[in-house]
Design a protein around this nucleic acid. Structure first.
Lengths: 297, 297
DNA sequence: ATTCATTATATCGAATTCCGATATTCCGGT
DNA sequence: ACCGGAATATCGGAATTCGATATAATGAAT
């Protein structure tokens, strides 16, 4: 059953003719006739007895009318409530995001989010490790990783391609690596606790043990060290696009493999209700990440 | 809004997955996905947060769910009542019909009507004039006439083509008329009070004054006189088809005109509610009159 | 960590439905 | 009897829907 058909029926009864109902609903009389006929076919009964000059309810029409009116009221009320709720992002949103991601991508979104949602407040936790969402009272965390931990309630937002980069200064004293084999001879700048970087070669993963004399608990630390000429870092494209565009860093393309693409995840404390405040944030983020130029600034 | 879309939504929530909802509803998962998406588009909100392995209500989804369930309940209840009512023909149906029409066409319908509607009783008033429906307590009258009296509440059921007929015996002594001019020289057998028969020539009406020494208050009387060789009668095709098929009467085709086609009307005491008992009678009659072979037995 | 069965959905092409335009018939007021 | 307006039939083009096929994602089981 189509509620637009029901609307024609109710309106015809109220108006006393199909033509007047059509005018009130902003459709052609022909369409009104069709919609009514469609409803009668769907219900298998004749609802209105009509000639070109008169219109009367059939017995079934009288029976159905209160239901039809209830359907209209029901739909209208639902739409009204949904419309009101659709803009209902309010309260404090606590979100934890990786430092660089937060500074570079999320922070620029904040003003617009707050402007669009006057009742919203945002608490941005910049952290390169995933907090315990429940004990910290976080509504959401963004995590950039390979695959989500199966114990997590997460949703993939976007792919996260990365590149090997180094400063021109670092590369002045030595040729850039061309192969995996070359790479292991270089100073690599991984996150603390990471001993291998994963590369893809023809859909095959290659785990490369790193020669690292430096690490940081924060990818921002790795980034900074890289900018300072400390070695080669593996950073997200969005994270280095300004540096590479301005010559502060240089992308390194290996001939025989490419860095594994990881993903940007939204991690939720619960799989239950996603509150409006979380939703508007995620929507804004998705919109940003979907932007074709987002990787290249 | 389409209630089949809403049904998918409610079922998905209940079942915990779109695929299971599809199974329960007897549709493909693809169709379930589309219906849900259609509903979300119609409402302009996301109702369900879904991945391939989990499904959760959004905030709007939670808001909409009670309305959706009410829509389903509402529609179901309406259909149940309509279905119950659709077979609810009961009580005494008083219907007045023309004598021949009653004997030849209506009487054969009675057994089936009574069988299909166990609570129905029928009182058939055979009359060649239209009774006062209200004072006689009639529910309905069938009338065969040209145009309904504008004071009547009537609905056309079918066209009623007629033919000039005469017995072979009558025609043995004289050639059958070929033109209007020939016809007026013949013995014509009209209904009492009728002084002219109306013919059509090229969409023009021709009123022909009759040379009549006989008339009857009942078309059956005219019919009987015609069979007996008394002259030429103007009778409905359905009324004479058996006689003409068996050679008891002969159809007379004029070269320059044809009898005006009149119509079979259902006349109601009121334009208000058409009771089930009246409806089943009219439906049966329409069905009979719509039968292509009805004119020719 | 890997595999696999299942889920959700994208794409394509054919079929169906819908709608507007035009026309016809009917009806009731004058 | 006439006429303006109502209801609806018909036709053709556009839009939508659906089934078939395919793909990507997911989470349970191992």
């Amino acid at each position: 059953m189509n509620t637009e058909d029901v609307a024609v029926y109710v309106s015809a009864v109220t108006a006393g003719s199909l033509s007047e109902a059509a005018r009130r609903l902003g459709i052609s009389p022909m369409l009104a006739t069709r919609r009514l006929a469609s409803l009668e076919t769907t219900l298998g009964v004749r609802l209105l007895h009509r000639t070109t000059r008169s219109l009367a309810l059939t017995s079934e029409g009288e029976t159905f009318l209160p239901f039809a009116q209830a359907l209209m009221d029901n739909e209208q009320e639902a739409r009204t409530l949904l419309r009101a709720e659709g803009t209902g992002a309010a309260g404090l949103l606590r979100v934890s995001v990786p430092v660089s991601f937060g500074l570079k991508l999320v922070a620029p979104l904040i003003p617009r989010l707050l402007e669009d949602n006057p009742e919203l407040r945002i608490s941005l936790d910049l952290s390169d490790h995933l907090p315990d969402l429940i004990s910290t009272g976080s509504d959401l965390a963004i995590r950039i990783a390979r695959l989500k931990d199966s114990s997590l309630i997460a949703q993939k937002l976007a792919a996260n391609p990365r590149s090997l980069v180094a400063s021109p200064g670092y590369l002045e004293g030595r040729p850039p690596p061309k192969t995996i084999e070359d790479l292991v001879k270089h100073d690599c700048l991984p996150i603390s606790g990471v001993t291998h970087w994963t590369f893809m070669r023809a859909n095959t993963e290659i785990h490369v043990r790193l020669g690292s004399r430096f690490s940081s608990t924060s990818i921002a630390g790795c980034h900074a060290a890289c900018l300072a000429g400390g070695g080669i870092a593996l950073l997200s494209n969005w994270n280095v696009s300004q540096d590479t565009n301005r010559g502060r860093l240089v992308r390194i393309q290996l001939e025989d493999a490419a860095p594994e693409t990881i993903a940007i995840w939204a991690v939720y404390p619960t799989s239950r209700l996603v509150l409006p405040k979380v939703r508007v944030f995620i929507a804004a983020l998705r919109s940003l990440l979907a932007d074709p130029g987002f990787d290249n600034d």
